[in-house]
């Protein structure tokens, strides 16, 4: 089931939390929703799930309007809210049964799905414990289990790996990736490597507007077309090497790397083969190119560029 968002806006009093955003998420796609706190991520997710009314525009789930058929569409959505609210007085198994009943899961399928979810999320040993007795990581698993209990076609996960230990994070990412093959998944997070590890596409939202939409690779290309390499050149002092490199066509800047004497960070304009240029320069001058490592623009830098200016 595809999700299509058209000119979606939402206002809280005078403040516009979401400002005319449009995007589409196809079945089998995992989209990472990024943005600083208060950017409008959770508000957008709440509108998709039908918890918050739509201000302007509309959301279409499988070509059906959330504005008109919101209640009916809820059964196709699994939602893990931010901060993962749970009924702490209920045992895990009873809670999952309650969620399955609310989602209208047929009685004959219910116990099978509960068992499956307990197994998938690794809650076997905790299933009879009250949720209030569980650690944060296990509670997060319960939150994921309730979101998936009715095998929804759409999963909306607001910070799904918060509070999990590194092993659990890897497991949950793997699970999301597996689920993402058949389902439409939107997940929000502040952990940027997680987006790269899990998502097919990244949406960055800032002040209610979409400021970037694409794969991690395409965002890198869009944010800075320059090529950057770290090089260690032996056979001459750093000053001579720097001057020689700056004479090459397309080289924009050459900076020493702090704490690494002899190492230089070389930036070339788009379209220039920097590695080849460095190699040829060294050959011509009789220097040794001992090291040449391409430096990728980090997602953090892209995020900061897009959300701070």
């Amino acid at each position: 089931m595809d999700i299509r968002i058209e000119n979606l806006s939402k206002r809280y009093g005078m403040q516009k939390a979401v400002d005319g955003i449009s995007f589409e998420v196809k079945t089998g796609e995992i989209v990472g929703f990024l943005g600083p706190n208060g950017a409008g991520k959770s508000t957008t997710m709440k509108m998709i799930t039908g918890y918050l009314g739509i201000g302007e525009g509309d959301i279409f789930i499988g070509n059906r309007s959330v504005r008109q058929e919101g209640d009916e569409l809820k059964k196709h959505i699994g939602y893990l809210p931010e901060n993962n609210p749970l009924y702490t007085d209920m045992p895990v198994i009873d809670y999952l049964s309650f969620c399955a009943d609310l989602q209208g899961l047929p009685h004959e399928k219910k116990s099978g799905r509960i068992k499956e979810m307990i197994q998938v999320t690794g809650l076997q040993a905790e299933k009879h414990k009250k949720i209030g007795e569980l650690s944060k990581g296990y509670r997060q698993r319960v939150g994921l289990a309730q979101a998936m209990i009715h095998d929804p076609e759409i999963l909306i996960l607001d910070e799904p790996t918060t509070g999990l230990d590194p092993n659990q994070i890897v497991e949950i990412r793997k699970l999301i990736k597996e689920l993402g093959r058949q389902k439409t998944v939107i997940l929000s997070t502040h952990i940027l490597p997680e987006v790269e590890a899990t998502c097919d596409r990244i949406l960055i939202i800032n002040k209610g507007k979409i400021v970037a939409n694409g794969t991690a690779e395409s965002l890198r290309n869009q944010s800075s077309g320059n090529t950057v390499m770290r090089a260690l050149i032996e056979g001459a002092d750093a000053g001579t090497v720097k001057n020689a490199l700056l004479q090459l066509p397309g080289i924009l800047q050459v900076l020493p790397v702090d704490g690494h004497p002899g190492r230089l960070e070389v930036t070339a304009a788009p379209g220039h083969a920097l590695g080849r240029a460095l190699f040829n320069c060294c050959v011509q001058n009789g220097w040794v190119l001992a090291e040449a490592v391409p430096v990728e623009t980090r997602l953090e830098d892209i995020f900061r560029n897009l959300t701070l200016n």
């Binding site: 918890y51 809820k74 939602y79 809210p81 702490t88 969620c99 609310l102 309730q146």
Partner: peptide, 14 residues
Amino acid sequence: KTGTIELLLTKAVT
């Protein structure tokens, strides 16, 4: 207070 209202109202209930 606990935020479970959000959980409840995003299930297939009115």
